[in-house]
Simulated scan of single mutants.
Amino acid sequence: MCKIHVPEYRDLPINPDAPKGSAWGLFDKDGKRDVFGTLNFITPEAVVAAKEEIQTGESVVLPLHLPYVPCGGDIRIKTEHKIFKKNFGMYCLDDELRFNTQSSSQWDGLLHFAHQTRQEYYNGVKYEDVAVTRTDLTLGIQALSERGGIVARGILLDFVRYAERKGIEYSAVTNYAISLEQLKEIIEEEKVTIRQGDILIVRSGLSKWIRASTPENGDPWVGNKHIGVNPTAELLEWIWNNNFAAVAGDAVAFEACPAPDGSFMKLHEACLPGWGMPIGELLDLEALSELAVKNKRWSFFVTVCPLNVEGGVASLANTLAIF
């Protein structure tokens, strides 16, 4: 498979006016500013190769109604579903949904999180032009639909089963930080080979906790401490140098918050405004992990069909994994 050759992380940025470690300008072509970021790693050849992951025809779709309490519930509503009966005098139903795109399984688009110091998004798009004047919507979630959605090979790193094998005790509703060393050991144990354009998915155990919760005890956000990967400089370098197209997991932010060094959203700032890399969050990975164990294979064909909303910030997951 033909690879796209890009600089190593240590050689970024290529634009001297760009933030440290960013990929601004790297994927620009014919004088046109790029809006797809690391999705450029998913070439047509990579998609054709990914179809080889479809072997048993089994698939899983991620649900929308959980968790019972949305993260940031003071500003993010819980999904509401309303049914309209006997429409137009006939036995016919319509329904309406009201939701916040960050309240359940979802994908962060490139307008979700800006570089906090510079107040700029991927490739230098100004926060002011997006949030205030709305004069530059090129990085909106509609760009993913214009590209044909996300169609790629996914790999699942199952930290839950790894922890069980190793006797690691932890809580999925704390800021337990999954280390790069642990991720590498899982890859070795699962015998997964990383390819350019893969979607990296990490199962932390939060979706297992959410699945076991009830409306009465289903608030995983008490204390504002969230499980996820440890966003060290080494981890960021590893993600970029492996040319992942996107990262995702069942955690609320993919990265541990706060991180062991006390920081917040270091990985978000590297991925979204730095590289143009989408982040999947709160994905329900329980059925996916069962299929992986059944098939003894932790790679699969995956599609993401985002909401086609011009200038949209994020999207419901609409994610399908096929074995």
Rank of each mutant, 00 (worst) to 15 (best):
R211A: 15
P215V: 00
H112S: 12
E310Q: 08
S315Q: 09
C305E: 10
C271W: 01
D198R: 01
H5R: 13
I155P: 02
W298L: 06
L200M: 09
M277W: 03
E189G: 04
R203M: 05
I150Q: 04
L200S: 04
L111P: 01
S207E: 01
P63D: 03
R33V: 15
P273R: 00
T135P: 08
I239H: 02
D94R: 08
K85W: 00
N243C: 14
A163V: 03
S59C: 11
D108Y: 13
E146C: 14
I42G: 02
K85S: 00
T133F: 09
G31N: 11
W240E: 06
I322G: 01
K82T: 09
S299D: 09
N230W: 10
E269S: 10
M277E: 02
F264E: 11
Y68M: 03
V313P: 01
F323A: 15
E237A: 15
T43I: 10
K126T: 07
E146I: 06
P70M: 01
W298T: 12
G140Q: 03
L111G: 05
D136Y: 06
D30Q: 07
G218Y: 05
G311H: 05
S289V: 08
A152M: 07
T135G: 14
V48N: 14
P70E: 00
A292R: 03
E189K: 12
K208A: 14
L66H: 10
P215R: 00
S171E: 08
